[in-house]
């Protein structure tokens, strides 16, 4: 049997590259920017496997351009860049990396929550700019994290990890999800299930942990922001388009809410003329919620395992569309 050909759309951890190179003929896209779509079409022409990221569009046209493709491995937990139905129709398994980034992402969401509440970025930048002249009893005051009510929209794995972290801060939790968690879990984490409007109205902190779907697109817009407390903090470490950025800008500018802390934006990267960047009450980090050394290493090796399983005709350890194996 010939050695399979693989295209890897970005530099990943060496450990993972070594795993793949041991079994396949690898072409690695080593630029920091993603390959342009046209280039990607050429690169996949003869490949059996593809390791890709959220920034790579994997659609029917691409699959047409890659007649040998039999393994798609995404290094992410989300896969909205991939036409999974189309892949399923063609019998191509799609791998992803769930689970591993749960704790790391919740850590970042909590870091954003605390930095926003305590005006940490503003304070740290003032120090760096030589503007720290004195201590003053009325400067840089923010809301208490301790004892504040945390609203969690989306009680999946990451939402639950947020609830767990909030326990150490004695925060009552309100949450909304399509699915309600069992009573014992609610009790364990001091969580109350409530309609989304109630969560928005009563929370001091609202943290979004939903997947991006047509239903969650601009889930937070004018109406929702209007319901929130005027000193509330909104945290998004999920996906940028879950929040309507124009509505968020207005709400922050007019004081409908107190603060926003974003790990994700719409679009990504944020454009430098985006008005959100002009606000003091909005902090933005560059989609780094899963960016810890151990997590990214695990994501890389998991993606390699999925890719190789697909190439070898074995079930992927973590497959988005396991129905391909039922045929």
């Amino acid at each position: 049997m010939p050695i399979p050909k693989v295209f890897i759309a970005r530099r990943i951890f060496q450990e993972a590259l070594d795993m793949i190179s041991a079994e396949a003929d690898v072409e690695l896209w080593s630029d920091e920017l993603p390959p342009p779509y046209e280039t990607l079409l050429q690169k996949v022409a003869n490949v059996d496997g593809l390791l890709c990221l959220l920034t790579d569009k994997i659609d029917a046209q691409l699959m047409d351009a890659a007649p040998n493709l039999r393994s798609i491995s995404q290094i992410a937990v989300g896969f909205e860049n991939i036409d999974v139905e189309e892949a399923t129709r063609r019998g191509i398994p799609v791998g992803y990396t769930p689970g591993v980034l749960t704790g790391t992402t919740a850590d970042m969401a909590f870091a954003l929550l605390m930095a926003a509440a305590r005006r940490l970025v503003e304070g740290a930048e003032a120090v760096r700019a030589g503007k720290w002249k004195t201590w003053h009893p009325l400067h840089y005051l923010g809301p208490d994290v301790f004892g504040g009510t945390l609203g969690i929209l989306g009680m999946g794995r990451i939402g639950l990890e947020m609830a767990k972290r909030a326990q150490g801060f004695d925060m009552p939790i309100l949450y909304y999800d399509v699915y309600r968690r069992p009573k014992d879990v609610e009790k364990q984490y001091n969580m109350t299930y409530a309609p989304i409007d109630t969560v928005l109205r009563q929370s001091d902190f609202v943290s979004v942990h939903v997947n991006l779907t047509p239903e969650t697109y601009h889930l937070i817009s004018h109406h929702e922001l209007h319901l929130m407390k005027s000193n509330a903090v909104l945290i998004n470490a999920a996906r940028g388009p879950v929040i309507d950025p124009a509505a968020l800008y207005l709400a922050l500018k007019e004081g409908q809410i107190g603060f926003a802390a974003l790990d994700v934006t719409e679009p990504e990267p944020i454009t430098m003329d985006d008005p959100l960047l002009t606000l003091d009450n909005c902090i933005i980090v560059p989609h780094i919620a899963s960016a810890s050394v151990p997590t990214r290493l695990r994501m890389s090796t998991m993606a390699a395992e999925n890719l190789l399983a697909g190439l070898n005709g074995q079930p992927m350890p973590n497959c988005v569309n396991p129905e391909v194996y039922e045929k």
Binding site: I12, T55, M272, I284, P286, H287, V293, S300
Partner: peptide, 26 residues
């Protein structure tokens, strides 16, 4: 966090996502 925030504000965020950027501690 503060380092990454400063980078975004300075226009450093030009690539949406890269698996090896901004790695921090668990």
């Amino acid at each position: 966090l503060t380092e990454a925030e400063r980078w975004v504000r300075k226009g450093g965020w030009k690539i949406a996502f890269h698996p090896l950027f901004w790695l921090g501690a668990e």
